[in-house]
Amino acid sequence: MSALNRCPHCGRDTIARLIKLTARAKAPAVCPECGGRSCTGITPLSLFGYFALILVCGTLLRLAARTGNRWSLLAVLALFGGGFLYISYRTPLVKLERYPLQRNIAIAVVVAVFAAGGWWFYNDIRM
């Protein structure tokens, strides 16, 4: 029997792990007990953290490949795999929001801030 995850609506452990890992806003996980729809709670800020983890692992992977040390290469791959498993299993399910426009506005603001910072950094280096 596979481990079950807690439904954010009724609070019972009814949602299978595989269903949770594939639950998105367009294809939500449906609780068999209460019928509540939920998806994984990945926010733009947590996506930035995951992106940073991928950058660090990619940099270390490149360094390990250049040095030719197999143990460091295996350590980086273990770090990357462990980070993926942590993200996959520890990301909670959340209720679907009533107003998806709020989420899209938040994502647009984060993208605009990073684009403005990148533009400023690029122009600062050129001078």
Score class of each variant (00 low, 15 high):
residue 1 M to R: 12
residue 2 S to D: 13
residue 2 S to T: 08
residue 2 S to V: 08
residue 2 S to K: 09
residue 3 A to V: 15
residue 3 A to K: 12
residue 5 N to Y: 10
residue 5 N to L: 03
residue 6 R to F: 05
residue 7 C to Y: 04
residue 10 C to T: 06
residue 12 R to G: 00
residue 12 R to K: 15
residue 13 D to E: 15
residue 13 D to M: 14
residue 13 D to C: 06
residue 14 T to G: 03
residue 15 I to Y: 02
residue 15 I to H: 02
residue 16 A to D: 13
residue 16 A to K: 13
residue 17 R to Y: 09
residue 18 L to S: 12
residue 19 I to N: 09
residue 20 K to V: 10
residue 21 L to F: 10
residue 21 L to T: 01
residue 24 R to Y: 11
residue 25 A to W: 12
residue 26 K to F: 10
residue 26 K to N: 07
residue 26 K to L: 08
residue 28 P to R: 12
residue 30 V to C: 08
residue 32 P to Y: 08
residue 33 E to G: 00
residue 34 C to E: 04
residue 36 G to K: 05
residue 37 R to M: 15
residue 38 S to V: 04
residue 39 C to Y: 06
residue 39 C to A: 13
residue 40 T to F: 08
residue 40 T to H: 04
residue 41 G to H: 05
residue 41 G to P: 04
residue 41 G to Y: 01
residue 42 I to W: 13
residue 47 L to C: 11
residue 47 L to N: 02
residue 47 L to H: 03
residue 48 F to N: 05
residue 50 Y to F: 14
residue 50 Y to W: 13
residue 53 L to G: 12
residue 54 I to A: 12
residue 55 L to P: 02
residue 55 L to V: 02
residue 56 V to A: 09
residue 58 G to H: 02
residue 63 L to S: 14
residue 64 A to I: 10
residue 64 A to L: 12
residue 67 T to P: 01
residue 67 T to M: 07
residue 67 T to F: 09
residue 69 N to Q: 15
residue 70 R to L: 15
residue 71 W to C: 07
residue 72 S to L: 15
residue 72 S to D: 09
residue 74 L to R: 01
residue 74 L to D: 02
residue 75 A to I: 01
residue 75 A to R: 05
residue 75 A to C: 11
residue 76 V to P: 01
residue 76 V to L: 03
residue 77 L to P: 00
residue 80 F to D: 06
residue 81 G to S: 09
residue 82 G to Q: 01
residue 82 G to E: 02
residue 84 F to V: 14
residue 84 F to E: 06
residue 86 Y to C: 03
residue 87 I to H: 03
residue 87 I to V: 08
residue 87 I to S: 03
residue 88 S to Y: 01
residue 88 S to I: 04
residue 88 S to Q: 10
residue 90 R to I: 04
residue 90 R to W: 01
residue 91 T to D: 01
residue 94 V to K: 10
residue 94 V to F: 02
residue 95 K to T: 00
residue 96 L to Q: 11
residue 97 E to G: 11
residue 99 Y to Q: 11
residue 99 Y to K: 09
residue 99 Y to V: 06
residue 105 I to P: 00
residue 105 I to S: 00
residue 106 A to S: 06
residue 107 I to D: 05
residue 107 I to E: 08
residue 107 I to P: 00
residue 110 V to Q: 09
residue 111 V to F: 11
residue 111 V to W: 04
residue 114 F to A: 11
residue 119 W to F: 10
residue 119 W to H: 08
residue 120 W to N: 06
residue 120 W to P: 02
residue 120 W to S: 14
residue 121 F to R: 12
residue 124 D to G: 00
residue 125 I to D: 08
residue 127 M to A: 15
residue 127 M to Y: 06
